[in-house]
């Protein structure tokens, strides 16, 4: 019985070798996601799978292996270990911690595996980051708010989870912009944990506490909740507030004629990272001095913006998509080639 197994394996291996010599090598890429529970993450994985298929259709076979579950940093390290033991060519990870992966990424690199973090930056020198600059994301919408208010007025801020690295980068971003606008006064900065319902509740409290609010800077999906509170208070025409990028919200934005603007953190970041990964696996070398960011390992990608002028076009893109669909953008293989020599 055992001999037969060995024989079958040997034959399979030989067939595989012969097939391999005539066809292009298949790149195996592991995708690790450590948090389930928002459609944004689902869309992120689906777009990465679609990007892999596009490569395959072009004659560059790319196979993705997905691990996606709500785990803590330790559990996600287990996901990475499985990829290493499986012998993938590259790992793309939306990491649960900025620092906890340093040793396991070092192990991956020692085995010649390319590691790319996306959506949240990591401190490891053995990995690179492909995604948006969270600070620039916040600065863009803060600038919009300053302009929408004509440079003066009272505003409130609703942030995500205190202590979360992305949140802290965003806070630094809008503060830097608001420092240059002396006419803007921040009445209060609250945390609502990136939860839509908490965002709505917090906005209700702020509206009740400060009758004279002209502007709101609020992050992500909490914007939908905050705007609901603003509309319910009958103040939608007197307040300018940042928005978010899901179809459901954009529909309300258009029908209620809100004054809003939203920086886009596109779910296509993982697909963008995959396109960069495949080019690297094909043996290309990165241009010198191209990496930036706090850890010096980041490739920042463009951050789209939606405002009242571009909203109709964005809604047109969203036609036929489900309500939770997010405005997205991907760095195409052609665009990604600009990162390489």
């Amino acid at each position: 019985m055992k001999k037969r197994w060995l024989l079958a394996t040997a034959v399979a291996a030989m067939v595989g070798l012969m097939a391999g010599s005539s066809e292009a090598k298949t790149f195996r890429i592991g995708l690790s996601n450590g948090w389930v529970g928002s459609e944004w993450r689902t869309q992120m994985i689906e777009e990465a799978q679609a990007a892999a298929k596009a490569w395959t259709d072009k004659g560059v076979p790319v196979e993705v292996v997905v691990q996606s579950a709500t785990v803590d940093a330790q559990g996600q390290i287990g996901q990475v270990r499985n990829f290493i033991n499986q012998g993938v060519d590259a790992i793309i990870i939306n990491p649960n911690s900025p620092t906890a992966f340093n040793p396991v990424f070092a192990q991956a690199k020692a085995k010649g595996i390319l590691v790319i973090a996306t959506d949240a930056e990591v401190s490891s020198k053995d990995a690179i980051y492909v995604g948006i600059d969270q600070k620039a994301w916040a600065m863009q919408s803060a600038k919009w708010l300053v302009e929408a208010l004509g440079g003066k007025g009272n505003i409130v801020v609703i942030n995500g989870v205190a202590g979360n690295p992305a949140n802290e980068m965003r806070v630094a971003g809008y503060r830097e912009v608001l420092k240059t606008a002396p006419g803007i006064k921040i009445l209060n900065e609250a945390n609502a944990n990136w939860d839509q319902a908490q965002g709505q509740q917090t906005m209700q409290n702020l509206l009740a506490t400060y009758p004279d609010i002209q502007g709101v800077w609020v992050q992500d999906g909490m914007a939908a909740g905050a705007w609901r509170a603003i509309i319910a208070a009958g103040k939608k025409d007197k307040i300018a507030a940042t928005g978010e990028i899901r179809k459901d919200f954009m529909t309300v934005w258009a029908s209620e004629k809100l004054t809003s603007g939203a920086s886009v953190n596109p779910p296509g970041v993982m697909a963008s990272a995959l396109n960069v990964a495949v080019l690297k696996l094909q043996g290309k070398a990165f241009k010198d001095g191209i990496f930036g960011g706090v850890y010096g390992n980041a490739l920042y990608i463009p951050i789209p913006f939606v405002d009242n002028a571009t909203l109709p076009a964005r809604l047109k893109e969203a036609e036929g998509k489900p309500g939770y669909w997010s405005v997205t953008a991907t760095v195409t293989p052609e665009q990604a080639a600009a990162f390489f020599k």
Binding site: Q74, T99, V104
Partner: peptide, 12 residues
């Protein structure tokens, strides 16, 4: 294993 501190470690 993680070579660093994380106040949210070990929740599972």
């Amino acid at each position: 294993e993680t070579a660093s501190g994380d106040p949210l470690l070990g929740q599972s």
